[in-house]
Design a binder for these strands. Structure first.
Length: 658
RNA sequence: GCGUUCAUAGCUCAGUUGGAUAGAGCAACAGCCUUCUAAGCUGUGGGUCGCAGGUUCGAAUCCUGCUGGACGCACCA
């Protein structure tokens, strides 16, 4: 909060106490202060409607009059900070001393180093953000990009607000579909092993599509696939002797790393720890050796895919603290099933095990009739492990809204467990009870809408790589046309612009609305786009470096003066608008975090960039004397500081020049 | 059928949590580069906030109904 608003807050608080004998907190007082919709209504306002709750009575206009009369006699107490107070209908509007305000903001930014807007909560939260989470047998498409950039951006925002963030990529590395993949891989003789090395995910996907098609003709394939999956899962369970409680015990003892690393395999790695290339011999060894072979094959698929994903993440500069997988949780799913059945929380139905979540009509399914695990049961185990490992205050799942039901049920299960804790026997379940009961109320599903209508010209799924390539190509054309780069593009400018366009496009609208995809829109780079923001920062860079030269020749300006700007300056009003926007940065980050909504920052940044570009167009700095330039240099770098920060928070690359 | 969610300018979206005159960007049209990067700026036109009720001083925002779309609803994830 700035000193202007602060003084209003305390003034209102005192006035209400003095005049109405009502005690209110600073927070309540702050809530009464509104931001008028238009600058012509001033900078802050008090609405009579809200004041009615604090002892003010009568028609709104009368209340406004009364408030106005409270302020006027005491104007001296705040007049340094405010130019004018006026009544307009039911509102009392406050106009800040613009020259002072602008000077204050600019100093505030330059004084906080690069940390302007950073939060430092008294009790930082420990927040897990689970995002991206691609399925290892499905191409990394646009849907995963959304989860990835929203998650990464939220991680940045929480961190910037002073919280402790743990970023987890929960790979979709398990489930019935892997039974299918194993079946397919072993069934077909014409598999291109080289292609498998180069494009593992695509190869797996093709296998999946192929076997799926064949299964439509011959349903017995599905049975084989289910058996293969069962064999795989049971093999893993055998390989990890000891149940859930033991595992939680070892986590308590500090053994937090995945148990899968030590799981059985038969020669997936060479003696240097490098994964072997698949060959015909290796393939038949995997396929003919029962559970151990299945496990090896599964690991082989997983490793190759993970490597491919890491390449993509590196390209768009996304980093995770941990990679996890569903398989580890699958191993302990059966324990969960037993606990919940025994305590009566879950029940059997048609051979499967279900839980009725209150308020929901659809029961949650935690185990299949053949005893193997499900997505849902694995997520329960995973959450418990994470509580044991990280003791989180909040866990955010960044997953599409089509999975709302799943996450409602997941939250519901932990509520039920907490309510029925005494039904679960203490014996052998101490740790389970401790951790599971802590989870209730701490899970958040941050959902996002689908991307509609995105396809190649042939109507196929668009891969992220191609998406970025297309955008970069377009950026390159533009750069070449303007004679800004050589064909070689050594700095990778076009790639950064392309990535910026693609990522920003995903973050500029509110998460929950479905995005209508439109190539023209993504490839235009004008108006409300990532490149527009990148361009704005580049412009400032260029201008600042040129002004820096001018300034060093011109001598010192009034660094310590109370006012850096004068209301007689030609550009005064525009400078004020810019600084006003800058001063809203803290609130913007704050609500972006509160709402788990990066787009709050996108809109904010676009507005700031737009104000700056208008200023840039209308006023010339070079050629003026140093006293004129120096404060404006501070203003420029304040804009740059905030815009750069937001680009960083939103995972949009910042360019020195473009 | 049940549940969730959405509907704002030709198109894509904002709209400060119920407040003052509903705003941007694209697209269209008219302008601005011998001057700090034209991926920019200025101006014009464009709206029954899906429809109908209700709640109150006040509704794009909350409630109900209707219409239309998206998603989900037991052994997939």
């Amino acid at each position: 909060m700035d000193i202007f608003k602060e003084s209003l807050v305390s003034f209102i608080k005192t006035a209400i106490k003095e005049k109405k004998n009502i005690d209110i907190t600073n927070e309540e007082s702050e809530k009464l202060i509104k931001n008028p919709p238009d600058v012509s209504f001033g900078d802050y306002s008090l609405a009579a409607y809200y004041m009615a709750g604090y002892g003010f009575k009568g028609k709104p206009e009368e209340i406004a009059e009364e408030i106005f009369n409270i302020f006027m006699p005491n104007l001296a107490r705040i007049e340094d900070l405010f130019d004018k107070i006026e009544i307009k209908g039911a509102y009392v509007n406050f106009f800040v001393n613009k020259a002072r305000f602008a000077s204050f903001v600019v100093r505030d930014v330059s004084g906080s180093g690069g940390d302007y807007g950073k939060g430092s909560p008294e009790k930082p939260l420990r927040v897990i953000i689970d995002f991206s989470s691609p399925n290892i047998a499905k191409p990394f498409g646009v849907g995963h990009l959304r989860s990835t950039v929203i998650g990464m951006s939220l991680s940045n925002i929480y961190k910037f607000c002073g919280h402790n963030v743990i970023k987890i990529n929960y790979l979709g590395d398990f489930g019935t579909q892997f039974g299918k993949l194993i079946t397919a891989f072993c069934r077909y003789d014409d598999i291109d092993f080289d292609e498998f090395e180069v494009n593992p995910v695509k190869s797996l996907y093709n296998l999946y599509v192929r076997i799926h098609k064949e299964a439509e003709e011959d349903p017995s394939i599905d049975d084989v696939a289910r058996d293969n999956f069962k064999e795989l899962e049971e093999g893993l369970v055998r390989g990890n002797a000891g149940g859930l409680e033991d595992r939680l015990g070892s986590i308590d003892g500090g053994q937090t790393e995945s148990v899968m690393g030590t799981a059985l395999d038969m020669g997936v790695m060479d003696n240097k720890g490098k994964q072997l290339r698949i060959t015909k011999e290796l393939k038949s060894r995997f396929c003919d050796s029962g559970p151990d072979g299945k496990i090896s094959l599964w690991k082989f698929f997983r490793n190759l895919s993970k490597k491919e994903f890491e390449g993509i993440y590196e390209k768009i500069d996304i980093k995770f603290d941990y990679y996890e997988g569903e398989a580890e949780s699958a191993v302990f799913s059966n324990d969960i099933k037993e606990i919940l059945l025994k305590s009566g929380i879950a029940e059997e139905s048609e051979g499967a095990v279900i839980i009725n979540i209150k308020g929901g009509k659809t029961p949650a399914l935690i185990a299949k009739s053949d005893g193997t695990s499900l997505y849902f049961s694995r997520d329960i185990v995973t959450a418990i492990f994470r509580m044991a490992k990280y003791n989180f205050d909040k866990m955010i799942y960044v997953v599409g809204s089509e999975q709302s039901l799943h996450f409602n049920q997941l939250c519901g299960v932990f509520d039920i467990i907490k309510e029925n804790l005494n039904k679960i026997s203490e014996k052998d379940n101490t740790r389970f009870k401790r951790y599971a009961s802590l989870i209730s109320g701490r899970l958040v599903h941050v959902k996002f809408g689908r991307i509609i209508g995105m396809s190649t010209r042939k109507g196929n799924l668009v891969f992220l790589e191609d998406y970025i390539k297309e955008a970069s190509l377009k950026a390159k054309e533009k750069l070449l046309l303007d004679n800004k780069i050589t064909e070689a593009d050594k700095d990778g400018t076009s790639l950064k612009v392309g990535i910026g366009a693609v990522i920003f496009n995903d973050l500029k609208t509110r998460r929950t609305t479905d995005v209508n995809f439109n190539w023209d829109n993504v490839l235009s780079f004008e108006g409300q786009t990532g490149p527009y923001l990148q361009y704005t920062v580049s412009r400032i860079n260029s201008l600042v470096s040129k002004l820096g030269v001018v300034d060093s020749e011109g001598g010192a300006a009034s660094d310590t003066a109370d006012f850096l700007f004068s209301k007689n300056d030609d550009d005064f009003n525009d400078i004020f608008l810019i600084t006003k926007q800058i001063s809203g940065f803290r609130d913007a980050v704050g609500s972006a975090m509160e709402l788990n909504e990066p787009s709050v920052l996108s809109s904010y940044a676009l507005e700031l960039a737009s104000l700056f570009n208008r200023y840039y167009q209308n006023y010339r700095l070079i050629g003026n004397d140093s006293d004129y330039i120096k404060p404006r240099l501070l203003m420029l770098s304040a804009v740059r500081t905030v815009l750069t920060r937001i680009l960083n928070l939103l995972c949009v690359p910042v360019l020195e020049r473009m």
